[in-house]
Design a binder for these strands. Sequence first.
DNA 1: GCGCTAAATGCTGCATACAGTATTCTTGCT
DNA 2: AGCAAGAATACTGTATGCAGCATTTAGCGC
Lengths: 228, 228
Amino acid sequence: MVAVSPHPNPEPSTRIERQSLHDAILSRLRDMIIEGHLVPGTRINEGQIGAQLGVSRTPLREAIKYLASEGLVELVPSRGAVVKSFSAKEVLDMIEVIRTLEQFAGSRACQIATNQDIGRIRDLHDEMVACYRSGDRLRYYKLNQAIHSGIVALADNAALSDVHGMLQTRLKRIRFIGHEGPEKWAKAVAEHEEMIAALEARDPDRLSAILGRHLTLAWERVKDSLQP
Amino acid sequence: MVAVSPHPNPEPSTRIERQSLHDAILSRLRDMIIEGHLVPGTRINEGQIGAQLGVSRTPLREAIKYLASEGLVELVPSRGAVVKSFSAKEVLDMIEVIRTLEQFAGSRACQIATNQDIGRIRDLHDEMVACYRSGDRLRYYKLNQAIHSGIVALADNAALSDVHGMLQTRLKRIRFIGHEGPEKWAKAVAEHEEMIAALEARDPDRLSAILGRHLTLAWERVKDSLQP
DNA sequence: GCGCTAAATGCTGCATACAGTATTCTTGCT
DNA sequence: AGCAAGAATACTGTATGCAGCATTTAGCGC
């Protein structure tokens, strides 16, 4: 059983030719993992995926090595790459590191962000709230991520954005699955509102506290859908 | 000018055949970067390095992609990989993230580490002090790193160890160069002693404070040898 | 029918070959 | 001599081929 895609032979529809092939393969693979087309625990068949993407195994293997360093796949000697599957503890660990990073970022942001920077986050937030009201979950999800990345970016620390982005990417698949009930969703939106307010008030302690709570909620949202 | 190695033709002495070729190439490349044989800013000539290592370009390129994700090299389209060079701000940013991570790790360690775990860190510390007294800088340096990684490991958080290790790796080259004067070195050793004491006392606040100071010292130690 | 062994298949890991692009060198001009 | 344009070289990016290992399948004995 390979189960690489729900569509066994879905025409090589999504061929690749834009920009750098490496980057293109990379994002396609990431998407396939995040969206669940590549199920955790399954081996990546280079021949098959290569054919599906319309590239030879060489650049595909290079992209896989990159993903391995990102932690999305695991390299098993003589058996190629396996889509990494995360235990509940591993997910919790990631969330706790993200919490730490975002709290640090938030404090910095309160110090150095310009009003304009904060305004841009507020705009994203307003847009996200609109998606919440209209029930547009996918766009909500994207904007949610953008806000968190945005706050981290306000800290103006490349290494911070790097590691935060890496952990976010690892979690994307988990978050992508989880669909919270209406109460938790409402709570999440309310917390976001508080976050933005604390940021606008440039109150690092308040921002830190609310970010902490928010990530605890994120954990509660996904924890039940995970293996021990 | 390529300037890949100080020795233009140093016999292909260090051929590779052990374990997984991928891992072997990876650590060789990391060493070459950390030890300065591959100077920041220079392009990596796949043919030359491949010949030097005794492997073809294919697995070498795969390893390079891995290093790119680790942030040790940068991929430039149609020009291959360039050894990443870090500005002073980037280094400072990394150190601040490491500080945040280690403080989080330290707090956790105070809560969950066993006495035996802490004892092992103490042993490393004692060994390091011995190297300090005997002036064995290289071993001191290695043990220093091991202690910091060890404290992070005590937090029992894989994601934390991951990102901490990644940033440590990026900084290794910088640290490798910096040779502090006797006063700063003595100060560093004294701080380490305090760190271990705080850990043994399981006092997270004290440990956090000393870790913070220690990393500030690390910054002061290297900042002058960096470009703006 | 069940388990074991051996052949056959499939896949990974590495090397090589080739095409396209950047870089360097050369040549001719001012 | 200095500069520009074109040729020659060198290197990267991708595909393909082949050897070795893993897995599956077929055959055989019990």
